[in-house]
């Protein structure tokens, strides 16, 4: 019981989960990778991940031994198997287009259509009509009134109205 002090437990847990060591199984750690965590990512800007893609096992052990000999004795299939043991996808595979532009375009179109219909339906069934002052006659009357009180005589409306001939300059 004295062994299970909280501090010791924390240390053990930290050691187990340090850099994701607990999550990679028996995979071989071969490098620093992107940021020092034991993670696998196929990225063009960091092509050398920290761990191998596959766990070592009976299917690959013989090949790994053969790899220590002359590489000229490796067949093409064996070379490919070695590559896929270390890496998940080749450069051209993870760089090629994924065809997801279709679903993105579709999603954006769906969102636009939804917003459009929402605004139409809200306008038709929910929102009250616009106030009287937004009607065309009311706006004309407002404009007339602004001219009459000579609003903004320097650069604004009144400056553009010819008061002697009663028309726009």
């Amino acid at each position: 019981m004295s062994l299970l002090k909280p501090k010791l437990l924390c240390t053990l847990l930290a050691r187990r989960t340090f850099h994701g060591r607990a999550q990679i199984g028996k995979r071989e750690v071969v490098g620093h990778g992107l940021n020092g965590t034991y993670s696998y990512l196929d990225r063009a800007d960091c092509p050398y991940p920290a761990i191998r893609w596959e766990e070592p096992g009976s299917h690959i052990d013989a090949l790994l031994q053969k790899q220590k000999g002359d590489w000229k004795n490796l067949s093409l299939e064996e070379k490919k198997a070695l590559y896929r043991h270390s890496f998940r996808q080749t450069f051209v595979e993870f760089d090629s287009p994924r065809g997801d532009w279709r679903i993105i375009t579709g999603g954006v179109m769906f969102g636009l259509a939804f917003a459009l219909w929402m605004s139409i339906l809200l306008k038709k069934f929910v929102l009250p009509p616009l106030p009287e002052s937004c009607s065309e006659e009311s706006k004309q009357a407002q404009l007339k009134r602004m001219i009459e009180i000579r609003a903004n005589p320097v650069e604004g409306i009144a400056s553009k109205w010819d008061y002697e001939n009663n028309r726009w300059k």
């Binding site: 063009a44 050398y48 790899q67 590489w71 590559y83 043991h85 270390s86 890496f87 051209v92």
Partner: peptide, 14 residues
């Protein structure tokens, strides 16, 4: 490490 040679050639091509 044979796989690394192929990966290096790919990175070089990239």
């Amino acid at each position: 490490d044979y796989a690394l040679t192929t990966r290096f050639l790919e990175a070089l091509k990239f």
